[in-house]
Every structure is written in structure tokens, then in C-alpha cells.
């Protein structure tokens, strides 16, 4: 049990950093929705964060990380004296140890957040597909898609409203809804779930198909 708590503590910074990175509502992500992958992808950043943080703590504070003690706890030493020593050490230094982790978590969250801010404000996600967030609908509805280098269209910098015409399938046939897009929501796969319109006009398509539109469109 102690070893698994330790492993969680070791991986936590990477997980928290990705929480910070994806904390804005529009950055809705589709992670490989299995928790094991999430844990595995958190290991590398965690190790890097721990290593950097350790260098700082060992060199600039009076506290030292007790690696033999960590080893005892991780590999559940069979020597009862050493286990006792480890736990009494843990209780003596409980507050510094807790502060060590809380500070590291806060730093990890901030680093993730700063990373996102740099990508967004530096327009890295617009210019480089690698940095693009999985919420493609954000780029479409915000007009940012017109600034993508691979989209051949004059970039739009100012949008007052987004007018949407939608062809909707209903039991009574196809209906065109036109309105001003106010909001949208995504499902867990980052696909559109629903759209919220105001000032809606509704027009059945069937009439046109049945003769009124001579062009037959």
C-alpha cells in the first residue's frame, strides 16, 4: 500500500501538469480515454519535474530527500528496524514532505497553464498543426480556422456574430434552421453534441423540392 501511494506521488506532477494545460473550457481533449495510457504518458514529465525540483531542494534548502528511506518504502524492506526507522522519519518530517509535494503540484499546474497560454497567445496552435487542440469546432466557430496556413481563405480577424444555416432531419422531413449561433457543446469524443441558436428562422425544405424551385436544387 505504501509503495502504491509513493508511485502515485511520483506520477502526480505529470498528471497535474496536463490538467493545468487542458484547464480552459475550449481545450476539451480526447485523451486515449483509458486511464492506463494517461498514467503512462504522465511518467516522463513527472520524472523530469521531480529531477529539476530535487536539484533545487537539495541545493537551495536545508532539507535533503532521504533516498534510502524512499527505497525502504518502495521496495518494502523486510527488516523491521529499517521500516520503523523509515516511518518515524516520515512522521518527523511530515510537514516538510507535504509542503514539498504541494509546492511541486502547484508548480506543475502552473507550468501546464503557462504552456497553454504560450501556445494560444503565440498562435502556435494556429500555425503548427502539432500544437492544435482537439476541439476542432472551436477553431471552426471562432473563425480561427481561417488563419490556418493550409486553409485557402482570407483570414477573419473580427466576428460579431456567427449565422448558421442547418439542414435538420425530422420526422416531418428536412427543415432548414437559420439563426445566430450562441453556444455549442461537445460530447466526450470532442464531437458536437448540440448547438444553441437564437433568432431562429425555420423553413421546411420539402416545398421547394416538390416543385416550387424550378431549378430542382
Amino acid at each position: 500500500a505504501v509503495a502504491s501511494i509513493l508511485i502515485v506521488l511520483i506520477i502526480a506532477p505529470g498528471l497535474i501538469m496536463s490538467r493545468g494545460f487542458f484547464s480552459a473550457p475550449f481545450t476539451k481533449r480526447i485523451l486515449p480515454s483509458n486511464p492506463v495510457n494517461e498514467l503512462i504518458s504522465a511518467i516522463l514529465p513527472s520524472v523530469v519535474l521531480h529531477a529539476l525540483y530535487l536539484v533545487i531542494v537539495q541545493n537551495w534548502t536545508d532539507y535533503q530527500v532521504d533516498f534510502p528511506l524512499l527505497g525502504n518504502l518502495l521496495f518494502s524492506s523486510s527488516n523491521p528496524d529499517r521500516i520503523k526507522e523509515s516511518f518515524s522519519n516520515l512522521s518527523t518530517f511530515f510537514v516538510p514532505i507535504a509542503i514539498y509535494h504541494i509546492v511541486l503540484w502547484a508548480v506543475a499546474y502552473l507550468l501546464g497553464l503557462i504552456g497553454r497560454v504560450i501556445i494560444r497567445f503565440g498562435s502556435l496552435d494556429i500555425n503548427l498543426a502539432y500544437f492544435r487542440f482537439n476541439n476542432k469546432w472551436h477553431y471552426i466557430f471562432s473563425g480561427e480556422i481561417t488563419r490556418f496556413p493550409d486553409v485557402q481563405r482570407p483570414p477573419i480577424t473580427r466576428i460579431d456574430m456567427r449565422v448558421v444555416d442547418m439542414l435538420v432531419d425530422t420526422a416531418d422531413g428536412s427543415i432548414i434552421y437559420s439563426g445566430i449561433l450562441q453556444d455549442y457543446s461537445l460530447n466526450n469524443n470532442a464531437e458536437l453534441d448540440s448547438l444553441t441558436l437564437s433568432h431562429v428562422f425555420r423553413r421546411p425544405l420539402t416545398e421547394e423540392v416538390n416543385g416550387k424551385n424550378d431549378a430542382g436544387e
Binding site: 477573419i156 466576428i159 456567427r162 448558421v164 435538420v168 432531419d169 434552421y177 439563426g179 441558436l197 431562429v200
Partner: peptide, 24 residues
Amino acid sequence: YKVPGALMVIPYSKVVNINLHYAA
């Protein structure tokens, strides 16, 4: 016909296609 003053929520599963205009 017009549906005044209301917000309309349309489930995307019913949508066949979307035509989007950016208005400035």
C-alpha cells in the same frame, strides 16, 4: 416562419449539414 425570442437547442445528431457565416 420565425421563432422569436427563444434559444433553440438542436441536437447535432439530427443535423445533416451546417452552413456557417462569419458576420462582422
